[in-house]
Amino acid sequence: MIIETQNLSKTYKNGFKAVNQLNLHIEEGDIYGFLGPNGAGKTTTIRMLTGLIEPTEGVAYVNQENVSEKNSTIKKLIGVLPESHGYYSWMTGYEYLEYFYNLFGGDPLKAKDQINYLLDKVQLLERSNSRIGQYSRGMKQRLGLAKTLINNPKIIFLDEPTLGLDPSGQNDIHKLILELNKSMNITVFITSHLLKDIEVLCNKVAIIKDGNLLVEDTIVNLQKLHSPQEIYRIKTSDTALAITFLKSISGIAKMETEVDYVEVTLKNVQETDLIKRRIVETLFMNHIDVFEITKVKSSMEDIFLNLVNSSTTSEVKS
């Protein structure tokens, strides 16, 4: 495990328990999504993992080192893009990266190459000598990402990296993260409200609510085990006619039609196979050919809302 927490908890001085008994398991090379509603404890967790605050209970390990004990060693291995990330508006982009490069004790002889490489990677090379005060929000976010990589980290923590960006900007960030993960085998710990981000980027996800871990699993398993409902796409020889017969099947909660297929939402997840058989039999008996029945995956949003809004909260081991 490159990141592991054991019963990690944080109670602030005012008595508010932000994180309760968190047990996370992140492998090297994972793009790990950490989800939760506002105030769930995501930022507190990141701050404990990066050594910015001390846990009240439990322990966090990063790269097999105890974060509380080996704070300055771990800081050299990680890069962090906090949610509220400010910049020195009087500096140029180049100066900003140079500053942090030097703070991390980088080799002065390699500084220019490293900085230009990262600026090129985040598409800011041409604007590297402009003051940050003149940068757009998207440019600042890309600069922040470059700063996160300035010390060649093994792990990067990204707290809401696409916040406030337009779809094109979000897309750029996604591509960058995927490329970094693939080419440099960087482990990525990411929090985001945009569940589509998580769907696109992550292979593993944890969902937290009120400081408690609801679930931690791969996306595939989450879709299997925690989908709130099952949706199937059915392609037939006569869509319009098929709909009239499908209406009579009791296990179907909802139907949505397109030109060449119909999507049915099943009422009872437990009776999936039974209902599927009913569908096929009904259509066959009415001389309608069934070309395809494929399951449509639940979105992360569906899974997230299902888990967060449910009344029971129990940790599921991955």
């Binding site: 910015l52 300055s72 050299k76 990680i78 962090v80 906090p82 942090f100 703070l103 991390f104 700063k147």
Partner: peptide, 11 residues
Amino acid sequence: QATLESLLLTP
């Protein structure tokens, strides 16, 4: 100006 966190995250 939210630059303190980044500073404290350096060694």
